[in-house]
Amino acid sequence: MISSNVSSIQAHQTFMNNNANNIANVNTDGFRPNDTRMTNSSDDTVTADTRLADDNGSEKSQTNLAKELPDQISITAAVSANVNAIRTQDAMYGSLLDIKV
């Protein structure tokens, strides 16, 4: 269903926003990044659950670029897959309408 693809895109947008904020604050002393987890619910929707990362006691930024940069790649791939699924569904519905008319 298109609605599950749309909810996934919206959740990944939240994930990307948090990710970008974490990277933007990589040089901010005392910064604690947001930790984002993606969850699927029983009604086929995807949500992004965000919490403040655990404090490791560092006075420097606690952003881990080794985690954040690969996350950006996976977020981009997930959004691309959902957009392609929506395009395919749209093309299929258009073909069905052409047959009915």
Rank of each mutant, 00 (worst) to 15 (best):
V101T: 11
Q72F: 04
T50P: 00
A24Y: 03
D54C: 04
G94K: 12
T88R: 09
R51N: 10
D90Y: 11
S7T: 12
T50E: 11
G94D: 13
R32E: 02
P33K: 08
A24P: 01
D29Q: 12
N22P: 00
A48C: 02
T45C: 00
S95H: 06
A78I: 02
D44P: 01
M92Y: 10
G94H: 07
D44A: 11
M38K: 11
S61G: 05
R51W: 07
I2H: 03
S61F: 12
N84P: 00
D98Y: 03
Y93T: 06
A91W: 04
V46A: 07
S7Y: 03
I9R: 04
M16K: 11
N21Y: 06
M16L: 15
G30I: 09
Q89V: 07
P33E: 05
P33Y: 04
N18V: 06
V46K: 08
S42W: 10
A48M: 02
P33V: 04
M16Y: 11
L96G: 02
D35H: 10
G94I: 00
S3G: 09
A85S: 12
N5A: 15
G57D: 09
Q72G: 05
S80K: 10
D98V: 00
N21K: 10
N5K: 14
D43N: 15
L65G: 05
S80N: 12
F31S: 06
L69T: 11
S41E: 13
S58I: 02
D98L: 01
G57C: 06
P33H: 04
M38H: 09
E59W: 06
D55A: 14
A85I: 01
Y93F: 13
V83Y: 14
N18K: 09
R32N: 05
T88Q: 09
T50H: 04
I99H: 00
V101E: 10
G30N: 13
Q10V: 07
I73R: 07
A48H: 05
A20W: 04
